[in-house]
Design a protein around this nucleic acid. Structure first.
Lengths: 160, 160
DNA sequence: TTAGCTGCAAAAGGTTTGCAAATTA
DNA sequence: TAATTTGCAAACCTTTTGCAGCTAA
């Protein structure tokens, strides 16, 4: 794969090299896929969301503001294709729809079971636990496929 | 609440005081609920499952072998009532239906993303992490509402 | 040219809800 | 008796699928 990692600053809050749509589309093509207008729009929307995690409905809405006739099934099929390429992944933050985001393996989610607030935390807080589980069970925890539930500071100081 | 904690050994693998159906039914009654035949059967099934986590469909099937005409909706409504009483809780081990189990807060689940094997681990392996998250974010992780994903020993030694 | 996408509509899977009849306390 | 549960059927929400036509490579 020869997708060049462009350095064009986009709208990300960080100063890491920006991932640009063309890179992603190129990977899609390289894997035998086609680049179509709906796919461009979907990638654009996902990039435009920055760190925010969008669910399928939000992606549909945003994509339709660019390209009104895109079907839901196209969204689901495209995000599945992008997940296969490990470009994005999905997380279950709570009950309800899954949310999609770029595949940085650098954060996890705590979700308050009372107010449903989401707290993002760096994945390396799990390093010790991960080592432990590896040693004891041979299990490698990977991914943030599911959030971790609990109670946030605000709710804890609230009466039940 | 005065539900006596009976010590009758049932079929649990552990030697903790067995929770008996009557205790649970009494709590249901104490909270203003009614004790009905379907509810008895559901509690029986849940108790009979011991440590196993049953999903709604499995509960329905098992309950119907005792009481053939119980509706699915009754199962869902009853497990919801039992969750409100904190007698049971549900976990999402993977995609697919939730699973229900008695509310011991003593274990967590690792689920292999490849073979879907479930590894149960003691919750106290999370103690350090929990302290950390509390200190840094005021967040109290609680519950095993979602499993932790990763890869099990067997799958890790397998070619991708 | 042809494998791969698309929109549409229908279906699937899991769970929830409205309601009138039945049951519990 | 009054409040709660029940079974049934229908609805719900999210996601998947089948298919014929369209399109990128």
């Amino acid at each position: 794969m020869t997708a060049k990692t462009a350095r064009t600053a986009k709208k990300g809050p960080s100063s890491q090299p920006a991932v640009v749509a063309e890179d992603i589309l190129a990977r899609l093509r390289a894997s035998g896929g086609r680049v179509t207008a709906p796919r461009r729009a979907i990638v654009e929307v996902l990039l435009g969301a920055g760190q925010r995690h969008l669910n399928a409905e939000e992606i549909v809405d945003a994509v339709r503001s660019l390209l009104p006739d895109v079907a839901e099934s196209t969204i689901y099929r495209t995000v599945a294709a992008l997940e296969d390429l490990a470009v994005i992944s999905h997380v279950h933050l709570d009950h309800g729809p899954a949310t999609f985001h770029f595949g940085d393996r650098t954060h996890r989610h705590l979700v308050c079971r009372r107010c449903h607030t989401i707290v993002e935390i760096p994945a390396d807080l799990f390093a010790d636990l991960a080592r432990d589980l590896d040693r004891r069970y041979g299990f490698s925890i990977a991914g943030e496929h599911f959030a971790i539930n609990g109670e946030c500071r605000a709710c804890r100081s609230q009466p039940t």
